[in-house]
Design a protein around this nucleic acid. Sequence first.
DNA 1: TGCCTTCATGTCAAATTCGACATATAGTTT
DNA 2: AAACTATATGTCGAATTTGACATGAAGGCA
Lengths: 105, 105
Amino acid sequence: MRKAKRARLEAKGWKVGTVAEFLELTPEESALIEIKLALSRRLRERRQKRMTQAQLAEKIQSSQSRIAKAETGHSSVSLELLVRAMLATGASPKEIGKAIAGDQK
Amino acid sequence: MRKAKRARLEAKGWKVGTVAEFLELTPEESALIEIKLALSRRLRERRQKRMTQAQLAEKIQSSQSRIAKAETGHSSVSLELLVRAMLATGASPKEIGKAIAGDQK
DNA sequence: TGCCTTCATGTCAAATTCGACATATAGTTT
DNA sequence: AAACTATATGTCGAATTTGACATGAAGGCA
């Protein structure tokens, strides 16, 4: 993983911190974070084409602030909220699966 | 969806209940439940080949009871726990993505 | 039969995640 | 400049999800 990505993680509350701390993440922990970040990015792409954060929030009875946090990869956002938001943009399970698998768009 | 599947959902605490109630689920809500159930099934398959529920639980600092609930599709189990458990069986993000996409094994 | 292992299910206090709200920043329009 | 729109960020009480624990059920086996 590149340094720039680590810095992004660190800023959002993921337990990354120093390089040493980062290396304490198991591969499974890293994979989970990567999955969530991949969904965050894909969510933003899809949502921006279709609606505002406030509109998406309304669709899933959430709030604009949570959508913002979801798209910026905040650690307080669950995988579940990310997937619900993806579905609300019209993404199919197949598209979500691809994003999680790391497929390029 | 077949009646048998609905009955399974109903038994596990998903807000399904009667047929009428079931029909009140939006397609997005249904898709999310299907995703979780697909992961439950895949988790059981993979875990059984490799270890007991107690051993898997230890790997992710969870408990045997939560693994049992994850595999039986209990509504109290988060997508996040399902994915963490899948990763702990050695599943790659790609394999998890396939399961979510609905690919047959 | 009793013993052992594995899995299922219910409960509960603690931890996490939630939606809501306030507010800040930035860009656009008038 | 002021007003308006979209997004980001912090906080907080409420809701959900958690691991832990107890216990039951089912099967294998001595």
